[in-house]
Every structure is written in C-alpha cells, then in structure tokens.
Amino acid sequence: MRIAERQVGDVTVLELEGRLILEEGEFPLRDCVDRLVGEGRVKIVVDLRKVTRLDSAGVGMLVSKYLTARRKGGTVKFLHLTARADELMHVTKLAGVFEIFDSEEEALRSFTPGAAQA
C-alpha cells in the first residue's frame, strides 16, 4: 500500500494505492492517520480511486481512523470510491455515516463552515 500525502490548506488529502486488506495496507493507513492526528492535522480526505482490493479489515480500519479523527475534533471524508467500495459501504451501512464525494473540490469545500454537503 502506497500513500501519497498532499496538503490543501488545512486539509490533508491521502491518495491510497494498492490493497487495503487484512494484514496488508491497513497498518500503513493506521500509522499515517495516527501521525497526522498527533500533529493536529485532523481534517483528512482519503482518496480510494487506486485501491485495488478492499475487504472487511480494510473498511474496519477506515472506520477506526474516522473515529480517531472525530475524537480530536476533526473528521475523515472519502473520495472516488470504486463501485466495489461503494457497494461495501452501503451493505455495511457506513454510507449513511461517512461523507463520500466524487470530486476533490467538493470534498475540500465541505470542510468550509456552512458549506452545503455534497
């Protein structure tokens, strides 16, 4: 799992590439988000466009890091879900919890106070 990190204002965009599955990919994501939250960077967008495989452990880690950021007054939002990831989010009822976007611009704008949610 490769993670490309970009800062756009006070929002960190993480582009994941590779497999987010049990014993692979979940730990790099955990370490990355924990580091960001520890640095006070709690506005995070996770781009899943290049995630090639996703299982329950991977989704579980997304949930875990969402909670980590929320506890520090921030949040994790999601971008460019593949069809498979979108299906998994719906069957696990997470689509009603997470903010999910198709465009980075909309995702970034959603952090603006008073911005309409996509």
Binding site: E26, D55, S56, A57, V59, G60, M61, V63, V91, T92
Partner: peptide
C-alpha cells in the same frame, strides 16, 4: 481487538 467486525455483515 483489531479494527474490523464487518465480515459477516458483508
């Protein structure tokens, strides 16, 4: 426990 718990639901 490690993050997870979604396998059966999936």
């Amino acid at each position: 426990l490690r993050p997870g718990g979604l396998g059966l639901m999936m």
